[in-house]
């Protein structure tokens, strides 16, 4: 009986593994192995045009020794923080209007309309923003036309342009996560708060906002991860007036073929993202508790 029972438990144990095996193999092949390769390469050196398989932390030390590398990380963190904050501030009212003010039968259409611009290519959209923000672009022409400015504003090829390009994209993402959170809230919370004498602002501030923090945080984390690792937007819209980490990494690959330094910088960026994840995850868990 004991042996039979043991065989049965083995059969039960193997079943789930069979189901998750494809996902595990996929992760192993396309994340774990490439990541380990990147870690190993980050410890190599590029001498002249050759890659030398060595074990050195020199590529990591470069990050702290060369001001322009470290500055790139600071720039990335600053831009990401600004983009995340602005995206939340814009997405929340947008999601709230769709969830609360748009009739239910129109909500799906409203969401589709919200994400419609994102069916175009990301690169094309970035170049479009460059034209929109140019000296003779729509924005400056409108500002000049209504007399708000006398000379065109320097919007394109700047951090402002990079932030606008990013925010345009991530507002959509945050709208979806916040909307998903809002529609799950029972109307009874609001009714109960109102019965206890709370006005609309107090209901929002003390009841709705705390309950939608998980949606905000999930969207904020996704925004953080996607923004800090993005190369296209700052490259197209920033005009190379400052470099962010993905641009510095690409310079090592595209111009110098210095894969060890690029790998080291990419791993440092991953460490920052991991720290951010730990921060976000802990915060969300605390709020839920």
């Amino acid at each position: 009986m004991k042996m039979a029972g043991g065989a049965q438990s083995r059969r039960i144990d193997l079943g789930p593994w069979a189901f998750v095996a494809p996902a595990l193999l996929w992760t192993l092949a396309f994340f774990v192995v490439p990541f380990l390769v990147m870690v190993v390469v980050s410890l190599w050196e590029r001498v002249g045009t050759k890659l030398v398989a060595s074990w050195t932390f020199a590529n990591y030390l470069k990050f702290f020794e060369r001001g322009h590398f470290f500055e790139a990380m600071i720039n990335s963190l600053e831009v990401t923080a600004i983009v995340t904050l602005l995206s939340i501030l814009l997405a929340y009212p947008f999601a709230w209007i769709i969830a609360e003010k748009v009739p239910q039968r129109w909500q799906r259409i409203a969401l589709v309309l919200a994400i419609l611009p994102f069916w175009t290519s990301y690169v094309v959209r970035s170049y479009s923003w460059l034209l929109v923000l140019a000296n003779n672009g729509v924005v400056n022409q409108a500002l000049l036309g209504i007399g708000l400015v006398d000379e065109p504003l320097d919007l394109a090829n700047s951090r402002t342009a990079t932030v606008i390009g990013f925010v345009h994209f991530f507002v959509m993402l945050l709208t979806l996560t916040i909307y998903a959170n809002l529609v799950q809230l029972s109307p009874n919370y609001r009714k109960a708060a109102a019965d206890l004498g709370a006005g609309p602002f107090r209901i929002f501030w003390h009841v709705i906002l705390p309950l939608t923090l998980p949606g905000i945080m999930v969207g904020a984390f996704l925004t953080f991860v996607l923004c800090i690792g993005d190369y296209i937007t700052p490259q197209v819209l920033g005009g190379n007036n400052e470099l962010l980490m993905p641009q510095v990494i690409m310079l090592q690959i595209g111009r110098r073929a210095d894969f060890p330094t690029a790998s080291a910088l990419a791993i440092l960026l991953m460490i920052v993202v991991t720290v951010a994840y730990l921060g976000f995850a802990r915060w969300i868990r605390l709020e839920r508790a």
Partner: peptide
């Protein structure tokens, strides 16, 4: 300088009057 751009960006900037 207003910008530092590769072939396409720099051509576009000059062509569009940026």
């Amino acid at each position: 300088a207003k910008l530092v751009g590769e072939v396409v960006s720099s051509q576009t900037a000059l062509a569009t009057g940026e």
